[in-house]
Design a protein around this nucleic acid. Structure first.
Length: 589
RNA sequence: GGUUCGGUAGCUCAGCUGGAUAGAGCGUCAUCCUUCUAAGAUGAGGGCCAUUGGUUCGAAUCCAAUCCGAAUCACCA
């Protein structure tokens, strides 16, 4: 059992036997003691002094004595400052902890394992990936790894948005302006090539609207009448009717995009167990509309469109089938949720989607619940904030985006420059160097995007390059490499014997002991930033320790053994935590 | 207008299930490589925690109102 839980329980039982008062262990607040006071853990007494009708000094003394008696091998002493009861934990307890912790078993599996689907990435096939997609991909990958670390089975999926009017826009632009050009002929990555035509469409559209307005047309009418828009709409219609030429063009252009995506995904390390294509799923959910009507969850208006009334739940009315019988986005999503449930039978399904769709997912879950879909309660939306530029939102069609490929390449280049300037890896082969640059560059980028609370929007300034010092991926990678360097010299065979613990040694042990809780917290909140912060704190603490105490040149052999073990455990914990963020840690850098 | 989310150091962010003197990183200034990797460490400076009121022994944290910003409330996806 972990120490904090033990302290809470013992507090509860001690108070019961002292005063015959029932206080649940959950109600007991146990904190790490502030450094300026003596002790390791603090129980806040105010919470129950009132209930007991005694002064804090009295309660603190009684409780302190009772707890020390109950846990003689753990609590060595206690003191009371105002309403705070500070316990000092015995060195033996921490020594045992350090001795028994295995680098291969840092994370005990949780009791209730689940099968969880994580859907992430969801690209559109009319443009290349940008910085916002990177946030999505890193979050999705990381939350999947965190859930796996807990012992869950995870299925990663992706839904590709490969049809619709926006796809037809780049198609019509290619049709009109490309005169047969291909990614090969223009030496471009396929997704970028197609994305260029999406921008070209938009430019042409704007020009046409302006022209119509200049000719005396109302702005609003012009926006509907622009010939290129008409062309795109016509293409969509043809696509839906299965027109062979249109489908050929669609397939050709999508294939270009997939080829480009594959390169990017490989580089950033995203993968999927199954990929769904909207062109296959956009008709799903039709039977569910019928079912909903029978169950009276949905109702039909005079024009025969079908709706659900969510006003009793504090939301609005929502359409689920148009009057022409076609389904809407929501209907598809309900259908897809049902399909995924049939195929994988998961306990929970996490959708990694931007916060602009908060409302959509609230409604989706609610409708699924009302339809009594088996997976309904397990729907979670990992909602993340947009990545914005100092000038505002990124817009693909305006071309004001930070391109994913460009940014990744830039990060790798910077890591190359910095590594070369430091000159610490002269013994590396060319392949090893390439791998190292990738590891560090991507590490910096991933950490940068994962270290903040997902639900907060973030501003990225392309003028300021992403840092390699301080609260960053490379800092943690560096700490890991440094420990490994020491361990290469000292060896890793250790035997821990009784020993006095210095404050920093104890602090390291305490920090290491909280790893499982942090993983669980990150998983429960779908928030990898909790782990990122933890790795930083651990690395920072180790660096302080490193500057203060020598490992290979320790005061005594006993100390050396102890510190080697602390080094092993710290390196392993950093490696585990970082890999759950999708970041590799090098042996040397 | 309704709903939701946010406002903490010059900048980027932690802390938010109420607890001791509000913490990091970057940037600024100063110190530390003949001893395990200086992508490091140590220290200084920097704060009406948006505003006002309330609850409480105790509020950055909870409640209410106000101000500012964002998203959303599509027969778009």
């Amino acid at each position: 059992m972990n120490l904090i839980t033990l302290l809470k329980q013992t507090t509860s039982t001690s108070l019961d036997s002292l005063y015959q008062v029932k206080i649940q262990p959950d109600q007991v607040l146990v904190n790490a003691t502030k450094p300026e006071f003596e002790g390791d853990y603090t129980i806040v007494l105010f919470a129950f002094v009132k209930q007991l009708g005694k002064n804090p000094e009295q309660v603190g003394n009684d409780l302190g004595n009772a707890m020390q008696k109950a846990l003689p091998s753990i609590i060595t002493k206690f003191n009371i400052v105002k309403g705070f009861l500070n316990f000092t934990i015995s060195n033996d307890y921490w020594l045992e902890f350090i001795k028994n912790l295995s680098p291969n078993e840092l994370m005990p599996a949780i009791k209730h394992k689940r099968k969880i689907m994580v859907e992430y990435s969801s690209p559109n096939t009319n443009k290349p990936l940008h910085l916002g997609h990177l946030r999505n991909n890193f979050l999705g990958w990381s939350i999947a790894e965190i859930l796996k670390l807990q012992g869950n089975e995870v299925v990663k999926t992706c839904i590709v948005n490969d049809r619709g009017i926006h796809i037809c826009k780049s198609m019509i632009a290619w049709h009109l302006f490309a005169s047969g050009a291909t990614p090969e002929s223009s030496h471009k990555k396929g997704d970028h090539f197609v994305g260029d035509y999406y921008v070209k469409y938009n430019d042409a559209y704007k020009a046409q609207v302006a022209e119509l307005v200049a000719g005396g047309m109302m702005q609003e009418t012009a926006e509907k009448e622009a010939p290129i828009l008409k062309g795109a709409q016509e293409m969509l219609l043809k696509w839906e009717q299965g027109d062979a030429a249109t489908l050929d063009l669609w397939k050709k252009m999508n294939a270009w995009v997939y080829e480009g995506f594959e390169v990017t995904y490989k580089k950033i390390g995203s993968d999927f167990f199954k990929t769904y294509y909207e062109s296959n799923t956009y008709l799903l959910g039709k039977e569910l509309v019928e079912e909903g009507l029978t169950k009276k969850v949905f109702y039909q208006k005079e024009d025969s469109s079908v709706w659900i009334d969510l006003t009793p739940d504090g939301l609005d009315e929502k359409i689920v089938r148009r009057k022409d019988g076609t389904s809407v986005y929501m209907t598809q999503d309900i259908g897809l949720a049902q399909l995924k449930q049939k195929e994988f039978n998961t306990d929970a399904s996490i959708y990694v989607v931007g916060d602009e769709q908060n409302y959509h997912f609230k409604v989706l879950k609610l409708i699924c619940q009302k339809l009594k879909q088996p997976a309904a309660d397990g729907i979670y939306h990992l909602s993340y904030g947009m990545v914005e530029l100092p000038t505002g939102k990124m817009k693909s069609r305006e071309g004001t985006v930070v391109d994913a490929d460009d940014l990744v390449d830039e990060m790798i280049n910077i890591s190359k420059e910095k590594t070369e300037a430091l000159g610490k890896v002269s013994d590396f082969t060319k392949e090893q160097l390439t791998e190292l640059y990738n590891t560090i560059g991507l590490g910096a980028l991933k950490f940068f995007l994962l270290r903040v609370d997902p639900k907060k929007k973030m501003i990225f300034n392309p003028e300021e390059s992403i840092d390699f010092h301080g609260f960053t991926g490379p800092f943690i990678q560096y700490t890991h490499a440094r420990i490994k360097s020491i361990l290469r010299k000292t060896g890793t065979a250790v035997s821990i014997t009784p020993n006095e613990l210095l404050p920093l040694e104890k602090q390291l042990a305490i920090e290491l002991s909280t790893f499982p809780e942090v993983v669980n917290e990150a998983a429960d909140n779908l928030d990898p930033s909790k782990l990122a912060i933890y790795t930083f704190n651990l690395a920072k603490l180790f660096n302080t320790f490193y500057a203060e105490h020598s490992i290979s040149n320790a005061e005594s052999e006993v100390k050396k053994q102890l510190r080697i073990q602390l080094g092993i455990l710290t390196a392993a914990t950093l490696q585990k935590a970082m890999s759950a963020l999708g970041i590799a840690v090098p042996e040397q850098m």
